[in-house]
Design a binder for these strands. Structure first.
Lengths: 231, 231
DNA sequence: CATTGTGAAGCGTTTCACAGCC
DNA sequence: GGCTGTGAAACGCTTCACAATG
């Protein structure tokens, strides 16, 4: 067992940006870029350089004054901090339109989140194969979670079934949920939930779109990760 | 022409929550609930009652002390404020896995965002019909945007094509973009962008999941809209 | 001497607490 | 009496500005 050292508490807003930095740094590494300044990374991430420096400072002092940050090293540090040193198998509940698209989308596994299973409550959907995974009955959830050590579940059901899906996931032992259903999930204390809600996103855009009429401007923040309007 | 009255500036964080309140209020209206207190709405939305009151106060003083808020009236006011009094046709760029799922997902149109068109650059994808809409070539974008008065575009392309998609959308006259590609889009000042990035969401969950090991607790915020861990 | 790392100021959001009102 | 509306306090995040430094 490796000894866990004391972990600094990283602000939520920073945690939400680290994945963005990570993606950019990996791209830069592929382009054989060895060093990057806070200024350079900020540009690519669409944020302010001071923010980049502050964010990275939570990981430790890994930059070199006058030079910048070593790309490969930063990639390593961010991966470690985000817990991306190993895979996190996920289980998808709901084999409808969205569940299928998610399971079929290869990017999941590539990025360290292999689909350990797809389950549905509808017998008609069973045994079809999506993205190389056979759809199983929701009653198999516990077994899948146990055997594959799943700790992240994805709710891709219709709204009416979402709370039940979440309850089942929690009962099966899942402690993080990514919710695509337009429903506020109730989960026990200690379970993390993040939601992705298309209608909400569009309605937010609608608000700024409406304001645009007769006004000349608008800047718009976004999902924690600070992307907005930009040039 | 209706006279536009002076519009209060609503904080971004509040704008992101209004769609959630709206959805809940519509549900309550369907359940024939006539009045709701800030406490009640807060419970259903998974937020604090004071926040609900402050949020709603930006719309005006529409509550009744000692009673609460009239559900139907609030629905109307939030709709108006969000610009949901008319439809906002959207155009989807990218007819791959995700683009198809989005176009096929009926919820779009129902919620006031009918799919005015789906375009792709790949000739092989043309003319297939998704969700009742025929896939057209990306060169038709301008024509679609013009004729259908589209101001919101959805980028559902692979990452490498996302910036080009955004550029084309902007050239066609779109002023709001919902981006599903894991890429930071550069857009001219005045164009709103919101992004939905599955990998980022999963990586954020990974962070808290990792922290969980050996610790006993965690609360986790989310996409501007304040859903977190709860009981 | 370019660039990091970081106190301190600034700003937006949340929460408290209570006066105001039905 | 119960619940809203809102100043004011508390909090967290962002940005500034500059000393530290390879």
């Amino acid at each position: 067992m490796p000894v866990e050292r004391v972990r600094r508490r990283i602000p939520e807003a920073t945690v939400a940006r680290l994945p963005v930095y990570l993606r950019i740094l990996v791209e830069q590494a592929n382009l054989e870029v060895e060093n990057i300044s806070s200024e350079g990374l900020a540009e690519l991430a669409g944020v302010n350089a001071a923010k980049v420096r502050k964010d990275l400072s939570y990981l430790g002092s890994y930059g070199t004054r006058g030079v910048g940050y070593e790309v490969a090293f930063l990639v390593y540090q961010i991966r470690r901090e985000l817990g991306l040193t190993h895979d996190w198998p996920v289980v998808i509940v709901g084999a409808g339109n969205l569940g299928q698209a998610l399971a079929g989308y290869g990017g999941f596994g590539e990025r360290g989140f292999p689909v350990a299973g797809v389950v549905d409550i509808d017998p008609a959907k069973l045994d079809s194969v999506i993205g190389g995974v056979r759809v199983r009955h929701i009653d198999d959830l516990g077994q899948i979670v146990q055997s594959r050590q799943v700790s992240i579940g994805v709710v891709a059901t219709p709204p009416a079934a979402a709370q039940d899906a979440a309850d089942r996931l929690v009962r099966a032992g899942v402690t993080s949920i990514l919710n695509f259903a337009p429903v506020v999930l109730g989960v026990p204390h200690g379970v993390s939930v993040r939601k992705v809600d298309l209608a909400v996103e569009l309605q937010i855009l609608s608000y700024y779109e409406q304001r645009r009429v007769g006004v000349g401007f608008h800047a718009i923040g976004s999902n924690d990760s600070g992307r907005g309007a930009s040039a």
